[in-house]
Design a protein around this nucleic acid. Structure first.
Lengths: 301, 301
DNA sequence: TGTAACGTATATAAAATAAATATGCTTTCT
DNA sequence: AGAAAGCATATTTATTTTATATACGTTACA
C-alpha cells in the first residue's frame, strides 16, 4: 500500500468517477485504473464496484475511505509539523517590543539560544500601534507590549508578564531618601513616557494620582526613556518609570525611590496573532514566558 | 513522502545505524542512505545527525519518529481491517425478513456468529414489497420472503428454504383431535394472513380448497400473526399458518391440528439482487442456508 | 435497434524511480 | 598511524509508474 494509492483512491471516491479523478490528479485515466486495481489486489478485496456510469463503494471500500481520509490528513499534518520544527528551531524569530518592555527580552533570548542555538533573532522596536501593524503584516510573529491594548484586538492572543511596578527616578542631588509620598510627588515637575495610541502610562499615572486627589505636575512627555533619564539627570524633574526599564540605563546621577501609598503598576504581555500560523520557534519562545510565570494563555478582550 | 520511507526512517532510528537498518530491511546500505536523504530533502530539514559511529535525532527527527510509528501502525491496522471486511470476517450484515419467516433467522445468526464473531447484524422486518424495495435500494443485502414473488423479479436470485407445511390452529375448546379433514376445515370460520402485494397464502389456501371443491369460509384477513393467534384463542375461528410461525408464540389456549388430504405448503426463500455486488459476509451467510438444504442457487422466474 | 458518447480496461512503449554494485571519504578505536 | 566500521557518491541495473493508443462495455437518445 502506498500513500499515493490512498490519495488516488479517495479522489476516485470523492469524484465518483475514475476519469474525473484522473483529471483532478493531473494524470491519464489508465494508470489510475491500474493503481486502483493494484490496491484492490493487494488488499485482496473489491473496493469499488464499477457499474457503468457511476461507481459504488463496497463495505471494504467504505472502511478504507474512512481510514484513508483520516490517514492522509494525519500525513499532511506530519509533514507540516516536521517542516515547522525543522525550520522553527533553526530559522529566524522576529520579535517586536515597545521600548519600555525591551528589558524582558535579553534574558529570554539568551535562555532560548542555549536550547536552540540555531535560532537567530530579529528584534524590532516600536510603539504599540506600529507593533500591532507588524504583527498583522506577519512582519513579526510575537510582540511585547504594555496593556491595555486598543479596542479592536480580538484577533490577538496574549500571555501576561510579571507586572512591573513604577518607581520614581529623581536627580541624585534631590533630598529624598528611599520612599516618596504622594504629596511630595505631586509637587515635583514630572516627565512621563508618552504613548502614540491607546492608553499609555501617562494616563495611568494621572489617574492613579487623581484617585488620591492630587494633580501631578507634568512638564514633559517624551517618547524615549533615555531622553527622560538624561533630563532627570540634569535635574529638570523627576519621572515615573517601570522598574524594569531602568535595568538598561546607567544610574549615574540618579536616585530611585519607591512610591508610598500609591502603587502604580503596569501590565505587560506577550501578544501574537490568534488562530494564525505560528512557527514552532515562536511557540517555544512564548512558552519560555509561560512556564516561568503564567500557565494559561489568556485572551485579550 | 512515502510509507516506505517512513518505514526506512523508523528502522534506522530503532537500529541506531543505517547499515544495520539496511540489513534488517534486506537491502543494501546506499539506497537506504539515499532514501533518508530524499526524505530529508522533501521535508527540507535534517532528521538524523550522522556523527561517525552512532546517529542522533534532530528535534524534527524526533517529531517525525513519533508520528511515523503512529502512522505506520495505523496503516497496518487499516490494511488488516479492510482485508477482514473484504473477506466478510468483519462488518455489518443487513438482512430483511417478512414476519412469518423470522423464525428462520435466529438459529442461522447464532451459527454464523460462532464462526465469524466480528460480524454484526442489522435486521429489518417488513412485508415482501417493502423488502424488495430495500434490496434494490441496497438498504439490505439479503431478504427472506415467502414465495411466489411478484412478476418483475428477474433481477433477483433466490435460494429455497425448507418448505413449511400449514397446520390448522384452533381454540383449545373445540372438539377436534390431531387431524382435520377438509370438510371440517371448510365449515370453520377462517382467519388468514394477508399479503399486500403478490400472491399470498390467502390465495394459496383458497386455491387448495377449491381443488377439492370446497369453499373456505374466510372471515378475517390479518397482517399480523400475533393478532390471528389471539383471535383464535378467543374462539373467533381457526387459522391456517405455516408451522414455523408458531415457534415464536405461546400455545396457551390453542390446539394444533395437521391437515388431512390437503397439504398446503408455503415455500420461503432467501433472495438477493442478482448480478450485483454482494458482500463476502452476505455470500457466506447465504451459504449457511445452502449447505444445509439445497446446493444449487436457483433463479426466480 | 442502431449509433454516438462516455467510462473503463488492456497492451505496449517511455519515463521515472528505486535498488545494487563498486568505490571513496570520514570517524573511531587500537 | 593504521585498520575497521559507517556513511556518501557515482554508475549501472531493475522495477515501477506513467502515457499513448486502442478495445470493450454501458448508457442515452434518436
Amino acid at each position: 500500500m502506498d500513500i499515493r494509492q490512498l490519495r488516488y483512491f479517495t479522489t476516485i471516491v470523492e469524484e465518483g468517477q475514475i476519469t474525473r479523478a484522473a483529471k483532478k490528479l493531473h494524470m491519464a485515466q489508465p494508470p489510475l485504473s491500474q493503481q486502483l486495481k493494484a490496491l484492490e489486489e493487494e488488499l485482496s478485496t473489491l473496493l469499488i464496484v464499477r457499474n457503468g456510469k457511476n461507481i459504488e463503494l463496497t463495505a471494504a471500500g467504505k472502511v478504507l475511505y474512512k481510514r484513508a481520509t483520516n490517514l492522509l490528513s494525519q500525513i499532511d499534518e506530519t509533514i507540516m509539523e516536521v517542516k515547522e520544527v525543522g525550520e522553527g528551531l533553526k530559522g529566524t524569530l522576529s520579535i517586536g517590543s515597545v521600548k519600555t518592555c525591551f528589558s524582558y527580552l535579553p534574558e529570554r533570548i539568551r535562555f532560548f539560544r542555549e536550547k536552540y542555538s540555531n535560532v537567530t533573532f530579529r528584534l524590532y522596536e516600536g510603539d504599540t500601534y506600529r507593533l500591532l501593524q507588524d504583527l498583522r503584516n506577519r512582519h513579526i510573529e510575537v510582540a511585547i507590549v504594555r496593556l491595555p491594548l486598543e479596542a479592536e484586538s480580538d484577533d490577538l492572543s496574549s500571555l501576561p508578564l510579571p507586572p512591573d511596578h513604577f518607581v520614581a527616578v529623581i536627580p541624585e542631588t534631590w533630598n529624598y531618601e528611599n520612599t516618596l509620598r504622594l504629596d511630595e510627588l505631586s509637587s515635583m515637575p514630572l516627565m512621563l513616557l508618552q504613548r502614540f495610541k491607546g492608553v499609555g502610562q501617562y494616563e495611568l499615572v494621572i489617574e492613579a494620582c487623581r484617585k488620591y486627589h492630587y494633580e501631578p505636575n507634568i512638564v514633559c512627555q517624551c517618547s524615549d526613556a533615555a531622553m527622560i533619564m538624561s533630563l532627570v539627570r540634569e535635574g529638570v524633574g523627576a519621572s515615573l518609570l517601570p522598574r524594569s526599564v531602568l535595568h538598561s540605563f546607567s544610574m549615574n546621577g540618579l536616585k530611585i525611590l519607591e512610591l508610598e501609598e500609591l502603587s502604580i503598576q503596569s501590565d505587560s504581555a506577550v501578544i501574537w496573532l490568534k488562530d494564525r500560523y505560528l512557527s514552532k520557534g515562536a511557540i517555544k519562545f512564548i512558552e519560555t514566558f509561560e512556564s516561568e510565570y503564567n500557565l494559561n494563555i489568556s485572551q485579550v478582550e
